[in-house]
C-alpha cells in the first residue's frame, strides 16, 4: 500500500483475513491513502499515494476507514508506529524511542512496524531498552520478567540489502518469538511498479533491498 502496484489485491487479501478475526492496524500510508492529512511523506511517496487513491474503490475506502491505530489483546499491544502517540507516526529507531513506546504501552509485549528492519527490544532492570537484532528462524524466548517490543519487519520494503520479505510469529503459550525472512517474486513486483508508471526508485528498492 503506497509503495507497490497491487493495493486492491493486497487489501482484498487483508480484508478476507480480517473477516476471519485477524487484527489489522492502520499504517501511515494507509491513512494517507484514505485521505487523512499525513505529514512527513516525501515526494515519491506522495506521487504513489495519489496513484493508489485512484485505484481504490468504495469498498476499500470503507475498509481503510474502519482500521484502528492500535489494538490491545490481553497484555499485548499492537500498533503501527510508537505506542507513545500512535497518530504521530514516530519511528522506533533506537533504544530511546523503544523505551518511550514500551512505557506508554503498559503491556508485556508491543508488536509494531513502521521501521522496516526486524528488531527486538527488552527493558532492562535499569529502565533502559536493550536492542537485539534477531537471527532469522531462531526462536527467542520472551520471558515474563522483562517487557518487550518487537518490530516484526515489513513484507516487501526491506532496508537491509536483503530482498526477502519479513514477518514474525509469536508463540504466546511458549512465550517466544521467531523472526523470519521469506523470498518472493520481487522482480515481478518491480516490473508491475514500472508498468504502472510509479517512481522508478520504488521498483529498484525491491530489487536491491535498499
Amino acid at each position: 500500500m503506497g509503495y507497490g502496484a497491487d493495493p486492491v489485491a493486497v487489501l482484498e487479501l487483508i480484508e478476507a483475513h480480517a473477516e476471519k478475526g485477524a487484527i489489522v492496524l492502520l499504517g501511515n500510508h494507509d491513512a494517507a491513502a484514505r485521505g487523512d492529512d499525513v505529514r512527513g511523506l516525501n515526494a515519491q511517496a506522495s506521487v504513489a499515494i495519489a496513484w493508489t487513491r485512484r485505484q481504490l474503490r468504495k469498498r476499500q475506502q470503507v475498509f481503510l476507514r474502519s482500521l484502528p491505530l492500535s489494538v490491545r489483546e490481553g497484555d499485548r499491544l499492537f500498533v503501527h508506529a510508537s505506542a507513545a502517540v500512535p497518530e504521530r507516526w514516530t519511528y522506533v529507531t533506537g533504544p530511546r524511542q523503544a523505551a518511550l513506546s514500551i512505557e506508554a504501552a503498559d503491556a508485556a509485549v508491543v508488536f509494531c512496524g513502521h521501521v522496516h528492519d526486524q528488531r527486538l527490544y527488552f527493558m532492562s532492570g535499569a529502565g533502559r531498552a536493550m536492542p537485539f537484532r534477531p537471527t532469522p528462524s531462531t526462536p527467542v524466548p520472551m520471558g515474563r520478567q522483562h517487557r518487550w517490543l518487537a518490530i516484526v519487519g515489513s513484507a516487501g520494503q526491506p532496508r537491509d540489502r536483503n530482498a526477502a520479505a519479513a514477518y514474525a510469529l509469536a508463540d504466546l503459550e511458549r512465550e517466544r518469538i521467531t523472526f523470519f525472512r521469506v523470498g518472493y517474486d520481487f522482480e515481478a513486483a518491480a516490473q508491475k511498479i514500472r508498468r504502472a508508471g510509479l517512481p522508478e526508485r520504488l521498483a529498484r528498492r525491491l530489487e536491491r533491498g535498499m
Binding site: F122, S124, F132, T135, V140, P141, H146
Partner: peptide
C-alpha cells in the same frame, strides 16, 4: 548466546 538477547548486558 549470539542469537539470543543478552539479558545480562546491563544488569
Amino acid at each position: 548466546h549470539r542469537h539470543l538477547p543478552d539479558l545480562l548486558a546491563v544488569e
